[in-house]
Design a binder for these strands. Structure first.
Lengths: 194, 194
DNA sequence: GATTCATTGTACCGATCGGTACGAAAAAAT
DNA sequence: ATTTTTTCGTACCGATCGGTACAATGAATC
């Protein structure tokens, strides 16, 4: 069976280029013309390889979680709750200041949206809620291990840490320097319940 | 001199309707058709009264700062830094959960954007930096009054409070309830340096 | 009542949106 | 070398984008 013409671009590299565009300009702010220009491929190739704009974004999102947000899995396995939060702050600051634009794709790409992009907006909100749930679960484990004081409100603590993290992403998008973000992280740890 | 036909709509009410649309769908996610439908006027009336889409948004932004964000001026005049932060948290949670969509217009409307909306994105970033600067100034006053401990890093403190506030807006856009946001605020105040 | 002038509604502008039809090109199988 | 299969490039689709020309409308002035 003949296997046809071989594709001339690397799918993963094309996804990285697409990630850069979505990161800088958000989901709605990115046009197909932007994507094809950055990815170095033409429109039919994009649709053949990745589906449509939304499916491409979801593939980019998977790659973003495995790449720039990959630190989170390791951070959750730190031995203490304090260590978890430190690793999250450090890894997230590296993520939001190390990318093609200051900020986090999951926070910025579609915090609000028109009706067309509603499914994407909901998916991003779902991912953010997942982070809160993961933190809460980890803090509950810490409480059961005696690492956090008995009676600690782990749900509130998880929401609070998520708020600081999300806030760092917004600050970065506001023009805060990496030093500024580091000062927030340092102060957060100084205030952390001991 | 004849004064011409009188306009049939109230400009302030139309601005409120426009604010609702921008609040729900962001700057780029809002179309002229969305705006005219919500404002109950047609396109030439909109352009004659408010300029173009960007100028309309800027007028909405002024109204947003005077209305939903109006608490900030009073909050900055609270007698203690602790009181300032409490008032900010309380007022901001009321704002982001009391509007037409959960979240804050200044945070959500254009955290990132395509090139067309770049001026709007920059203006919103400028406003957010202004909040940080206002908090820092207020904390420096508190430090000079002995309200905050000598040697306090007021810049870091302001960035930290801004991060929690921005984070609350993101959490709200992620679906957090007002109770959840209140738990974050309460925990933030419990951790506040005494 | 005639005139003046801003507002209104309709109908339209060129540009861009996301998405696709179709033929040329290229590599594997026969 | 011919056939088969897939990708690539161009050129295009209808729909929607932000913005406007123009004539009808209606209230105030004369």
């Amino acid at each position: 069976m003949p296997s046809g013409r071989v594709r001339e671009f690397d799918a993963d590299e094309a996804l990285d280029r697409a990630m850069g565009v979505f990161w800088r300009h958000g989901y709605e702010g990115t046009s197909l013309a932007d994507l094809t220009a950055a990815m170095g491929i033409n429109r039919p190739s994009l649709y053949s390889a990745f589906g449509n704009k939304e499916q491409l974004f979801r593939k980019v999102l998977d790659r973003y979680q495995a790449g720039p947000l990959g630190f989170a899995a390791a951070a959750l396995e730190m031995p203490t709750a304090r260590g978890v939060v430190e690793a999250f702050l450090d890894g997230f600051i590296r993520c939001i200041r190390g990318g093609p634009a200051p900020g986090c794709l999951v926070v910025s790409a579609a915090l609000v949206s028109g009706e067309d992009a509603e499914p994407v907006r909901r998916e991003l909100a779902r991912l953010r809620r997942g982070t809160v749930a993961a933190l809460r679960g980890r803090f509950e484990r810490a409480a059961s291990e005696g690492d956090l004081a008995a009676g600690t409100d782990c749900g509130a603590l998880a929401l609070y840490v998520a708020a600081v993290l999300d806030g760092l992403a917004v600050l970065a998008a506001s023009g805060a320097t990496e030093v500024d973000l580091g000062r927030v992280a340092e102060l957060t740890m100084r205030l952390w319940p001991s």
